[in-house]
Each structure stands twice: as structure tokens, then as C-alpha cells.
Amino acid sequence: MLDDLAVKLDGTAAAASTIGRKKAVFSGALRYAVELGHLPAHPMNRVKWTAPKKSDEVDRTAVANPEQAARLLRAVRDSTPELEAFFGAMYYAGLRPEEVLNLHDLHYERSTWPDGWGWLHLGGAAVEVGSGWTDDGGAIEYRALKHRGVKDTRDVPAEPALCALLDRHIEQFPPGPDGRLFVTRRGPGGMYRPTNGRPVTANARHTAWRKARERGLTPAERKAGVAPVPYSLRHACLSGWLNAGVSAALAATWAGHSIAVLLKIYAKCLYGEQEAALRRIDAFRAEFGWPGTA
């Protein structure tokens, strides 16, 4: 059974992440069978089987640089203007999609001066799970922030470019009945009015992103896999913070990661890190006049 989990229906090898997810589900079912008394012990404990290694690191070729990100956001504005600020929050503040979906007008602290920095005070996430998995039969489940308690919050800075996007969005596209900024909308003549306040669906977000990649990236960039999914914008943001010199501890706090996970995921995205380290070593050698130094 474990070997079967490692292949797809067509017989080709499955991705390491897929295997890990299926193995966890299968193991949970077996563990439950032990609890019910259907099995005397967990059979996986008697089998030596190694799953393919899963790589958590972000591929630097998929991380959009600032110029590419700007083109993508402009393309969203041209094709799906009501979602420009949604993707902007992911790029400029590193928010996860479910955190943006739960963003209320009251969560947005505007700057006290023109073109200044604001703050986003996050208090939860809106996760699209399907009606079969919620108590009320709805497709959305409102949860605590990832890796945090029910009442925990997280503060993230909103740079001036993001504040401008959010201000324009709120002016053009009023929040839904419950105050959420990114909800399903409809209306003739470009009048995008919120409907029942349901968060924007995953299908709508991914459709908008496909259009943006077609408009905003060159064929070579699309083929190379630049920003293949909306989540790539979060990767671009966090990589940008680290490359700008923000400490790993502070970047992890803003991103809602542990420091270890942050550095593990973005290890390959630290542009110029090796060159800077070599220059520091050269300077150290030169200070003491060691051989091979200027």
C-alpha cells in the first residue's frame, strides 16, 4: 500500500508532497483502526519504508523580482481591478491568501501622514474548505491565524504602495456587509457591488492570476515558471524583506513563521548573500595583512 501511495494513477511517480499527505491520511486511518480494536497494532511500525524527500525550499526562479511583480499587479488592474489590492496585500505585506480574505476595514490602520506606512492588524483567516466539512454547511471556515491561538493577532507593516492600493480599493469597491474587503461582487456597467459578503472564491482568484500572467509576463518568463501561482507573491515579499536587510527574527514575526522555517524555505532566495560574505572575509584578511589579500 505504501508503494502504491508513491505513484499516480498513470503509474508515474507522485510528488514528494503528495506522497507525504497521502501517507499521513493512511496512517491516521490505521491509527483509528487500532483505537477501535480492529487492528492489534499499527502495521506501519513493522515496515521499513522511506518516502521520497520533500523539498521545502522556494525555487528562486519562481520568485518574481520587483519589476515583474509591478507588471503583474498592473495586469490585474487591467483585467480584474477588484482584486488588485488582494494580490497587492500578498506582495507588499506577505499575507497568506486566507489572511487577505479575512481582512476587514477595521484591521487596516491608515498612515497618519501622506505617503506614510500603515499597519495591518490580522486577527484570523477565512479558509475555503467545502460545504461538506463545516458545521453550518457553508464553504468557508473562519479560523485562527496559522500556528497561533484563537485570540492571537499579528501586526504587519503596510508600505505606502500597499496603503495606496487599499485606499483606492475601499473607495471603488466598498466592503461587504460584515466589513470584509475582498468579497464576491456583481453589477452591470462596472458597478461592482458586494453580494452576500462571501469571500472571493479560489477559482476567481486563480482565474484572475492566469489572466495577469498572460498579460504581465513575457512568454519566456511564463515558460521559466515565474510566479506560477498567487502564493508566489508571498514568497517574493518575504525574500525581498530578507534581501533588504530585515532581520530574520523580525521578518519571521511579520510573516507568521518560526525563524528556522523562514530561513529553510528562503535559503535559495537570498540574492547577494554569498558575495557579501566573501567581501567580509576579504576585509577580515586584509585587516591583518594575511597572504593573498590586498
Rank of each mutant, 00 (worst) to 15 (best):
264 K>W: 13
230 P>T: 07
209 W>Q: 01
249 A>S: 14
224 A>D: 10
194 P>N: 02
175 P>M: 05
268 K>I: 02
231 Y>M: 08
262 L>K: 05
182 F>T: 04
216 G>E: 00
176 G>A: 06
211 K>M: 06
277 A>E: 06
143 R>F: 07
248 A>C: 03
257 H>D: 15
159 E>M: 13
247 S>G: 09
260 A>N: 14
240 G>H: 00
257 H>A: 05
151 K>D: 12
159 E>R: 13
156 V>M: 06
215 R>V: 12
282 D>W: 11
217 L>G: 05
201 T>P: 08
208 A>I: 04
252 A>G: 08
214 E>G: 07
256 G>D: 10
266 Y>Q: 01
152 D>N: 04
149 G>N: 08
228 P>C: 06
182 F>K: 00
203 N>S: 14
237 C>Y: 01
250 L>I: 15
197 G>I: 01
259 I>M: 13
178 D>R: 15
152 D>V: 00
209 W>H: 00
161 A>I: 00
274 Q>A: 14
227 A>K: 03
269 C>S: 11
226 V>E: 01
211 K>G: 05
186 R>S: 15
205 R>N: 07
253 T>Q: 15
242 L>C: 07
176 G>C: 05
146 K>T: 05
235 H>R: 07
262 L>E: 10
238 L>N: 10
245 G>A: 03
246 V>G: 02
243 N>K: 05
262 L>F: 12
202 A>Y: 12
273 E>K: 15
190 G>D: 01
190 G>A: 00
174 P>N: 07
196 N>T: 13
